[in-house]
Design a protein around this nucleic acid. Sequence first.
DNA 1: ATGGTAGTTTGACTA
Length: 254
Amino acid sequence: MKIATWNVNSLKVRLPQVLDWLAAQQPDVLCLQETKLTDAQFPRAEIEAAGYQVVFSGQPAYNGVAILARAPMTELERDLLADDPQKRLLAATINGVRVVNVYVPNGQAVGSEKYAYKLAWLTALRDYLADALKQHEKLVLLGDFNIAPEDRDVHDPEGLAGQVLLSEAERAAFRELTALGLCDVFRLHHQEGGLYSWWDYRAFMFRRKLGIRIDLILASPMLAGSCSSCEVDVAPRRLERPSDHAPVWAEFVV
DNA sequence: ATGGTAGTTTGACTA
């Protein structure tokens, strides 16, 4: 089972690239973040024509998540916090695997209101997963975490130390997820630094190879044990009008 | 120290 995540930064703009990527990579599941579309605007027909079923949770202009899958999706769940208009979580069960797609808040700057919202959201996510892991032995939590777990995930850990995406409180929140038994499967297969999933559009950061690894695939113990590979596909980041994120995928032998 | 770009949308905002 090949499961992928991609922050597309507007599905309206990136739909042709997504359809090309599905055809080239043939994932069983693709989780999207930052679709930036209302449910009424969602391009369901185009995705179904490509051979995928799709569920989505969106709002105007910001956020928005979707799951594309070759097999049927059941037990749909959306929204982590009650009465929150920000659409950032979508979960479904696919072939016995619980798939939890997240777009973690960016947090803007340490100490800001958005940063406090991010930490509160991550606390709610931990509680949500503690419960979900009791119900689902095979679970994958993936998406844009907006957290660089370790210094080797950052091009300039000294220069960016303590800033948003790297701050100790964010990393502590991430470790609370791994403490539940979730494993960052990319690190089962790659130990070196210099491997990133996001590059700022500004200052030629991609061509200068200056990025951060914030798009992650975490798996429950039973699933992590069957992870045969995990890769960042940088090819879409080289295209005209790219997303600022590259897709990340993992293969599980289930 | 700041601003650099891109996407929402047409003035800021978010990232």
